[in-house]
Design a protein around this nucleic acid. Structure first.
Lengths: 361, 361
DNA sequence: AAATTTAACTAAAACGTTTTCGTAAAATTT
DNA sequence: AAATTTTACGAAAACGTTTTAGTTAAATTT
């Protein structure tokens, strides 16, 4: 029989009291040295198989270290080497498929290179971004990988980034970047993604192509809007601002969708994200329109929703994992061979159109 | 005009060469001391506003430190205090809505308490879990929060966890836990979640209730299967193993779904995850069945897919963020006041049923 | 004026490494 | 046998803090 309370915020507590087992404290070089009657430096060298140390001493030390499972203390090594083997990642949100994907790429590459990743979430806030960055910059990490928070992009204040790079800490920006920051960048060609999507619509004979987007201060939205416009103009289709639905925030507002689709007759929709696209698809479906016959959809960032929507949403894939790997590669390279000249590279990945049921084939 | 290459793996490289600006190296106590002609200890104390130091010296030191933006080095402090203010989080996968949600809770709480989070992804592999854990345990973190990889659960080997706890490093397990590990745990009542879902089906008059699940070595699947069985038996409905579809891996296999639904006539489906549920819904819809009239669905973990499926998938919410916060709270409490007695607590959160279109109201 | 207290500071150890420089003793060369 | 080289090790500094235990000089008390 199951317990009966159904309240999510009531929970069970199960206690168990154990006698405290004696701690196996971590052993240090000093302990080994004392125990074996040799000096700390001898132990250190013996463990590194140094030629300086006699083979019987080496054997003795190594055997002892193995027996007591000696592992050097990371913090002490970091202090000595002025290298932490940690990289700091600051992203606006972690519950977000794209960022998560990039993170996986970063973590994968970093781990393979022996680095750990410290993640901080800026929560789209300028202040949190600054605080976290300054905290980590005080010796905790060897370099940063980040995507700007919308708060930062809105404020257009990048002093915290400048501070960090001026201290010689490498920085790689991805996806949400800013022109005037001097650092390495990895982005995808958002403009091209939008351009290709609109071009496909036009090839499919669509005439009234809408754009659903967010405010322009988000760099990627701006780029995508530019690609949308350019594709229309290149194909001699009128660029009509009435066909652009601009959401003031990331929060979905069903009324805006309803107003828009009641007001404008459109036969194709490009959306800067999945959520806006899915909501719109559902709305037009509820109005009896058929997708893709009456109206087709393409959405940015190929995530779970696109894949499992019904019909599947044709999507512009951003290759997040690859982006993360590249960012990590650039960063770690900078960290490990900090060269004399200051050369910055911007890598621009090409988006890919993943065709699904929301567009005609 | 946009560039023409459409290959995602061809990318543009933009170089920019700058003359290296002189580095503003981080300043240390030693620098301040030398510059001001006082000792390091005086500087340290002055910055802490110690009563031992004369007020003019304090003023001088503080002003100097502020001017040169002195910030203590985290690593040095960690070495001294034997406290890193980092917590290690090891999860099987990061591109996974539930884990991501838990992570948000952890990060939020930890950050508020001045802790940073180092994430490692075990990728469901026992070996990676062990390696990452041992690496972090060598001084990099003050405690661990983790969910066991499926590899570990399959192998049933928890020596790496034991090693760590025996060294006095606090450990909190969440969601994917194991009975025989002595540590704090935060889980949701999976059995109850399944029990409630099946009970709802029965109340709605469903007779042939299927379960779609994964192999039993995943602790949560086992619990959910138990709740399913118990609810049936409590309601005098035959427990029929033919109505259980067990996927051998997390990879979706459309053939198994097809075989299952062709073979068995079912009017309700409980799925241990969203993906299995969504796929099944699509399959039965393609066969002309109406949801929820002909067949209803409930899926575990209320994620994006449930919300945006069509119809919306009634889901059992796992309260991941709350789980993360609680785990972090327990851990940090242990880290900061490591008590004499060894008491372990298991907090069991109650699941909540989020009703949507896939079940009748 | 001598003894004591207080104020204001410094030296040094400690955290756990790595590494440079020394130095005895042993082995080798003259 | 004396001079030189090699072998095998240790002392100490360094990384940047914090903290304990001094140590002066000035101020106060007797």
């Amino acid at each position: 029989m199951c317990p009966t309370s159904a309240n999510a915020f009531v929970f069970l507590l199960v206690y168990s009291l154990e006698k405290k087992t004696p701690l196996k404290r971590k052993i240090t070089l000093k302990h080994i040295a004392r125990e074996l009657g040799v000096s700390i430096s001898t132990v250190s060298k013996a463990l590194k198989n140094s030629e300086e140390i006699g083979s019987d001493t080496k054997e003795k030390v190594q055997a002892f270290a193995k027996l007591y499972n000696y592992k050097p203390n990371n913090i002490a090594i970091s202090l000595k080497n002025k290298r932490t083997k940690n990289i700091g990642v600051i992203i606006p949100d972690i519950v977000h498929h794209f960022f998560t994907t990039v993170f996986r790429g970063i973590e994968k590459y970093a781990n393979a290179k022996g680095y750990n990743v410290i993640v901080c979430v800026s929560d789209e806030s300028f202040d949190k971004e600054v605080i976290n960055m300054e905290l980590l910059a005080n010796g905790s990490i060897d370099g940063f990988i980040m995507a700007l928070s919308s708060g930062t992009q809105l404020k257009n204040d990048y002093n915290h980034l400048k501070e960090v790079t001026e201290q010689g800490i490498p920085l790689v920006l991805f996806d949400r970047v800013a022109e005037d920051i001097k650092c390495d960048k990895v982005i995808i060609n958002d403009k091209k993604g939008a351009y290709n999507a609109v071009t496909k619509f036009i090839k499919d004979g669509r005439k009234r192509i809408a754009l659903i987007t967010s405010e322009d201060y988000i760099s990627v939205s701006r780029e995508r809007a530019a690609g949308y416009k350019e594709a229309l103009l290149d194909n001699n289709i009128e660029y009509n601002e009435d066909l652009i639905l601009k959401f003031p925030s990331m929060e979905i507002n069903e009324n805006l969708i309803e107003d828009f689709f009641e007001r404008e007759k459109v036969d194709a929709v490009l959306s800067v994200n999945e959520i806006f696209a899915i909501h719109s698809m559902r709305y037009v479906q509820s109005k009896g329109l058929k997708i893709p016959e009456d109206i087709s959809f393409i959405g940015f960032t190929d995530g779970l929703l696109s894949k499992y929507a019904s019909p599947g949403l044709t999507a512009i894939a951003q290759h997040g994992e690859q982006m993360g790997e590249i960012a990590a590669e650039i960063l770690i390279d900078k960290v490990e061979n900090d060269m004399e000249e200051e050369t910055y590279v911007t890598r621009i990945l090409e988006p890919t159109l993943i065709e699904r049921g929301s567009t005609v084939n």
